[in-house]
């Protein structure tokens, strides 16, 4: 389970300090146990019966840029600024 927690953390680009690993593992096990109490889904019920209505290809107004940038912790010029990340 600890290896799994480390894997999840790596996927989420989070660092889990070694001294917290046990706590996280216990908590995650508790979540999993809770999830297991949910009734299982039959496979043929997996697809919902409802069907999606598609929308016509029409343009609606976008948000003003100030609103888009409003919640960003850091802004530089017209962009949201994030810590340096190499493209992959």
């Amino acid at each position: 389970m600890q290896a799994y927690i480390q894997h999840l953390a790596r996927l989420a680009k989070l660092s889990v300090p070694n001294d917290k690993l046990n706590t996280f593992t216990e908590k995650m096990c508790a979540f999993m146990k809770l999830a297991e109490t949910l009734p299982p889904l039959e496979m043929d019920e997996r697809l919902p019966a409802e069907r999606m209505l598609l929308r016509p290809d029409t343009v609606q107004p976008s948000l003003p840029r100030e609103s888009v940038l409003h919640n960003a912790p850091k802004v530089q010029d017209e962009y949201i600024a994030a810590p340096g990340t190499l493209q992959d």
Binding site: V68, Q76, D77, E78, Y79, I80, A81, A82, P83, G84, T85, L86, Q87
Partner: peptide
């Protein structure tokens, strides 16, 4: 789209 500003080690984001 991401722009990488090497000088400030910042990634600038245009959504």
């Amino acid at each position: 789209k991401l722009l990488h500003d090497a000088a400030t080690d910042t990634t600038l984001i245009d959504y």
